Computed example of a mutant assay.
Amino acid sequence: MAWEDRTPFDAIEKSFGLGEPQVIAIMRKELKRSSFELWRKRVTGRATKHSALRSEDVTRAYCPTQYKNK
């Protein structure tokens, strides 16, 4: 969930009880350094990762085409 750009940290906290600092620590531990740095650069200040910065029109945590019916 943390890797997906459209999933806000609030949704991760609601689902798993992990706040943003804990998610960052897990990502730092589990990813290669370069991958972590790229991810961190991508999500820092990103409106889709922080519900407070997100538009009120967005009510979902993922892209509608992300989970396709088979």
Rank of each mutant, 00 (worst) to 15 (best):
R60K: 13
T59H: 08
A61F: 04
W39K: 04
S15V: 09
L38T: 12
K41L: 14
R40K: 11
S34H: 12
L31Q: 11
R6T: 03
E13Y: 02
R46K: 14
P8C: 06
S35W: 05
D10Q: 06
K70L: 06
A52F: 01
T65W: 01
M1D: 13
K41R: 15
A2H: 06
A52Q: 04
D5A: 02
E30G: 08
Y62P: 02
G17H: 01
K49Q: 12
R40L: 12
K32I: 07
G19V: 07
S51P: 01
A2R: 02
T65A: 06
R60N: 01
C63D: 08
V23N: 07
R28L: 12
S51Q: 12
P64F: 02
K49S: 12
L38K: 15
M27V: 13
Q22D: 14
T48P: 00
E37Y: 10
E30A: 12
G17C: 06
R6Y: 02
W3Y: 07
H50N: 11
K41S: 15
Y62L: 03
Y67P: 00
Y67R: 10
R46N: 14
K68Y: 00
A25P: 07
D10M: 01
R46H: 13
M1C: 12
R40Q: 14
I12Q: 01
C63M: 09
T59E: 01
E4H: 08
L38Q: 13
L38R: 14
L18N: 04
